[in-house]
Nucleic acid binder design. Structure first.
Lengths: 334, 334
DNA sequence: CTGAAAGCGCTTACAG
DNA sequence: CTGAAAGCGCTTACAG
């Protein structure tokens, strides 16, 4: 049905191998031969069968990306950039949504998803380092955005703790003393939530402000969780003069709930988030947040993964990359 | 290296074909044989090589999704739902971002991307029906979200025109007479922008309100475009008492710009959008918009595409599905 | 109900 | 610089 390499070889009067050589940019081909093959390819409209190539070569030119939910704005923006960075290097990205379910994360590490891809970009939420190590296999794996302190793994992350501390310090220096934190994850074995909470506590310590567990609201990381958390604090009679949402979606949900209830932001309560998603700039009031170097994260993680796959990065232990961050001070916490 | 079907066959003392039969749920296998094969599979930890299966069967169990930009919130939410709907049916989704570039759209229809997938979900932005028809091929194609009036294609869309008219009518009945429209696309050959603009004009006609081209701002569909469009109108001295963003991102950008400039919403200017992305609910003021039945669109489009692939849908012409819509009236345009 | 053989379309040693 | 052959791991007719 479709045109095959055999058809091209016949049309060009050469063998299969020669066609293959031309397709794979083998150096030593006589120019005239190469031209004949290229003409035949153009004339017949030949396109390489990628599945056959994969089967034989063992490389699919696809990368796997495991994250909890593509509709979360941070992941949507990150995935978009990762796909572009991969595309520049000749790779496609296949996305798997884990919904923060441990079994899905485990299966992504060793099941068909792994098999289809040459390497994995993985955001572990529910499983720990040992679970990952037990399923490493021989294909490259780069951990993303989380901070598993384990030199066995390649890791591209952000300065979760320092950035959260810097943001908290900023709130403190603005005179806030009772800073509610929403989005803590007590059940999470490896994640940004814990690190960001650490940063918050360190900044409090530094300023000599006592830590009050009543100000910590555990919840998931969506807008509605943020709104509900703030509602819970207000209805529980907890007093606070600032809210630190551990990501922007939470902070934006919190902001919404505060405004609905007539709480003035930032006059009565300041609000800050983490991620600097595009939405943060356009909120009203615009959201103070941490810009975690998303482009750098995308570029470095794809670069590292592809370098591993193609053998340019061969260090034995894990390569650890930490992207820089920037405080984006806006209206919600000036 | 990896365990193959041959290893399983040997371990179970049967032929390759028998293992294949078990894997593919062939009915007529002696229970004892089946059990022996399953035991061998479990013992050896065998996993089918999907690439080999694809090469031989011609099916990859992957669907292609072509859209302009995964970081746009509407597409992010839609893609997430599409992937879940596909997953329920045993398919994965491979995403291609076109960035609204015609060449990318054309290549997605016939290049390697098409080859890797069993069927395509396609949002044409820059190319027209004839360009698509010329590249149809034999694999199923379902057009998504756009309204190419051509009975050759399967199409899952929304009531763009009616919904835009209903929203405009609502603004008119609230006493608004100078409704700015932002996000018109004059260069787009097939798209929602034109239909939504039509709906707007029909509602104006219906109400006997004259159409003023000065109120129409052409721009792309991101938040920053919405903000810039409103800034342009205000600085151009165009008077208006409402803004209809042709999607939510635009409307939210416009809302932001209005508030920055001290324009009261909705008192002085009402704002409405289209899409009902999650963000719309949490904006301040919350955004009045059209909910275009996203879950229905995701479910029906994946269902139709998979039915075509698996031969359950065999109608010659295109199947046309139009999802229902709902007006979400919120604070920005009560 | 099960087996032996062919073949999907490539790449990869191996020769020459 | 190029060719002939083998084989990646499956599924698919074809027999029996």
């Amino acid at each position: 049905m479709a045109v095959t390499m055999n058809d091209v070889a016949r049309a060009a009067g050469v063998s299969l191998k020669t066609v293959s050589n031309v397709l794979n940019d083998y150096e030593f081909i006589r120019p005239a031969t190469k031209q004949r093959v290229q003409d035949a390819i153009a004339e017949l409209g030949y396109e390489a069968n990628l599945t056959a190539r994969s089967l034989r070569s063992g490389k699919s030119k696809m990368l796997g990306l495991v994250l909890s939910d593509l509709s979360a704005p941070y992941y949507a923006e990150l995935a978009s950039r990762l796909m572009k960075a991969a595309s520049r290097r000749g790779y496609r990205v296949l996305v798997e949504q884990s919904d923060a379910v441990a079994d899905v994360e485990l299966n992504a590490l060793q099941g068909p998803f792994r098999q289809l891809t040459d390497g994995l970009l993985f955001t572990p939420l529910m499983i720990d380092a040992d679970a990952i190590a037990a399923r490493l296999g021989r294909k490259p794996l780069v951990l993303l955005g989380e901070h598993i302190l384990d030199s066995r793994f390649d890791l591209v992350t952000m300065k979760n703790e320092e950035a959260a501390a810097a943001l908290t310090a900023r709130l403190l220096s603005g005179g806030r003393r009772r800073i509610a934190v929403i989005g803590a994850h007590s059940g999470e074995s490896a994640g940004s939530a814990g690190l960001r909470l650490n940063g918050y506590r360190k900044a409090l310590d530094q300023a000599g402000v006592p830590f009050d567990p009543a100000l910590v609201a555990p919840c998931q990381w969506r807008r509605d969780n943020g709104a509900a958390a703030v509602a819970g604090l207000l209805e529980g009679g907890v007093e606070f003069d600032a809210v630190f949402g551990l990501n922007d979606a939470l902070a934006l949900g919190a902001l919404h709930e505060l405004l609905i209830r007539g709480v003035r932001v930032p006059r009565e309560v300041a609000v800050a988030g983490f991620d600097d998603i595009d939405e943060a700039r356009f909120a009203s009031p615009s959201l103070t947040t941490v810009a975690p170097g998303m482009e750098e994260i995308a570029e470095r993680s794809i670069g590292l993964l592809v370098d591993r796959i193609e053998g340019r990065e061969t260090s034995g232990g894990g390569v650890q990359v930490e992207a820089g961050f920037l405080l984006q001070v806006r209206e919600s916490a000036p």
